[in-house]
């Protein structure tokens, strides 16, 4: 143990220097979006309960829903919902033994990311202009 080489050893791959494959990134995002959706659900259920609780309760909840806070939470939730939905559809493909090759999984990952953004923008356009 006297002459241990402490400075010149190869480094093992570590999370901080390891570039995650896109399939891993989107898999982690699926879990995060699924759990984060609780924020949007809570806001909407509070809004529904307030609507049957009385005019003052509804005024408060409706103000939050229509404020910039509500806009951020609901737009974020819409994106999380679309992302989680598309990733869930990919899981149905995975379960049937498809999209499991590395290139396919990589392409499906980008499809989920781009698709979720496009569908969220479409949802916003539909909400504001239709």
């Amino acid at each position: 143990m006297a002459d241990v080489n402490r400075g010149n050893r190869p480094l093992s791959p570590h999370l901080q220097v390891y570039r995650l494959p896109m399939a891993a990134v989107t898999s982690i995002m699926t879990r995060i979006t699924g759990h984060a959706l609780v924020a949007g659900i809570l806001l909407l259920v509070w809004w529904l309960v307030a609507a049957v609780s009385g005019p003052r309760a509804f005024a408060a909840a409706d103000w939050v829903v229509r404020s910039w806070i509500g806009f951020i939470v609901l737009t974020g939730s819409a994106w999380a919902l679309w992302f989680h939905t598309l990733a869930g559809i990919r899981h149905l493909f995975y379960d049937s033994g498809q999209l499991l090759r590395i290139e396919e999984a990589e392409r499906a990952s980008w499809a989920i990311i781009i698709g979720s953004v496009v569908l969220t923008l479409l949802s916003l356009i539909l909400f504001f202009f239709a």
Binding site: L44, A59, D62, R66, A78, T85, G88, I89, L126, F127
Partner: peptide
């Protein structure tokens, strides 16, 4: 998840139509 694939767009439309309505 199969049920939710159908319910997600339907629910977004329902909520989108509801936001902005009076009490």
């Amino acid at each position: 998840s199969c049920a939710l694939v159908l319910l997600v767009p339907a629910f977004l439309l329902v909520v989108g139509n509801a936001i902005g309505l009076s009490h």
